[in-house]
């Protein structure tokens, strides 16, 4: 496990290196100065903005730096520590892994997000993780819209070796979801993960469809869906906040997963999101293979952003 953890850590860090080096370039320049002047603080703020924290959140971190500098003479490491600490303080309360708690079974997880955010791949990774924890897993192919989306999930289901409930392309996803819950209840599956079609959050009809899927789930099992996981793409900028807000209003998001953190994108918008919405962050995706989904670690991401 520890070796594995190192593996993903290395992956994450290799991706984060660029951000870190950018930030440390800026921070290194500060060491020679005895005092943090406004221009230097501006630089720090800009470095944070470049990590997608957003102007408001970056400004907050800057303000904190401006006040702490009187307390002690800060060297480069000190500045980084404070940046990391500030970010971790925001992120730590929302770090919470996805647990299988639903009873009676199945524990139903609805996975939603905009197109191309990585829902299907994330579902496969989640399924693998639950399977490794000895839970019985079933998938429901609720994306009946995108061409070959069902096929994509089927390939994953086959590779992992879990059952999948699907219908025809263009069919009613609510019907498939109904069948899946029924089947999962019958055979006593622990976890049912439901894929949905990607949808932009400003498309009302599609958001209505999500609400319908929710209703159908609740009909068979009042507690379902136990989790509504919004998948966010790390390359997304401040629009992620609009996504969270709308999906929360219309689909009752209960937690977040951020994908594609193995690139140069920092996902700094998570910091702003954590402060604004206080939704749990369950996991992060750091690659395309099945083992590239990891529990979210606030300190790790904070340190990575701060260099």
């Amino acid at each position: 496990m520890s070796e594995e953890a190192q593996g993903w850590g290395a992956k994450l860090f290799s991706g984060l290196r660029k951000t870190s080096s950018r930030l440390s370039e800026n921070l290194s320049a500060l060491v020679t100065k005895s005092n943090l002047d406004a221009a230097t603080l501006d630089e720090i703020e800009d470095a944070l903005i470049a990590s997608d924290l957003g102007p408001a959140m970056a400004h907050r971190v800057r303000e904190r730096l401006a006040t702490t500098r009187q307390e002690r003479g800060l060297d480069e490491a000190g500045i980084r520590a404070i940046v990391a600490e500030e970010i971790e303080q925001v992120l730590a309360p929302v770090a919470r892994p996805l647990e299988v708690t639903g009873f009676p079974r199945p524990h139903v997880i609805l996975v939603i997000g905009v197109n191309g955010s990585g829902k299907t791949t994330t579902i496969a990774k989640l399924a693998r993780r639950f399977q490794e924890e000895d839970y019985g897993v079933m998938l429901a192919a609720g994306d009946t819209f995108r061409a070959a989306a069902i096929g994509q999930l089927k390939v994953w289901a086959e590779r992992i070796g879990v059952p999948i409930i699907s219908g025809p392309e263009g069919g009613d996803p609510a019907g498939i979801v109904f069948d899946a819950v029924k089947k999962a209840t019958e055979i006593g599956t622990d976890v049912l993960i439901v894929d949905t079609a990607g949808r932009l959050h400003n498309k009302r009809e599609l958001m209505d469809e999500l609400a319908k899927i929710r209703r159908v789930l609740g009909r068979l099992n009042p507690a379902a869906p136990h989790d509504v996981v919004l998948v966010l793409d790390a390359t997304t900028g401040q629009n992620a906040l609009a996504q969270i807000s709308t999906f929360q209003d219309l689909a009752g998001v209960t937690g977040l997963v951020m994908t594609k953190l193995d690139g140069t994108a920092r996902g700094g918008v998570l910091v702003a999101a954590a402060e604004q919405f206080r939704l749990p962050i369950h996991a992060i995706g750091v690659g395309e293979t099945l083992d590239d989904l990891r529990p979210f670690d606030a300190g790790e991401l904070a340190r990575a952003i701060a260099g």
Partner: peptide, 12 residues
């Protein structure tokens, strides 16, 4: 490119 892309647009 996704028009929702954030600061990473420059790197990409």
């Amino acid at each position: 490119v996704d028009s929702l892309t954030g600061q990473d647009a420059v790197n990409v």
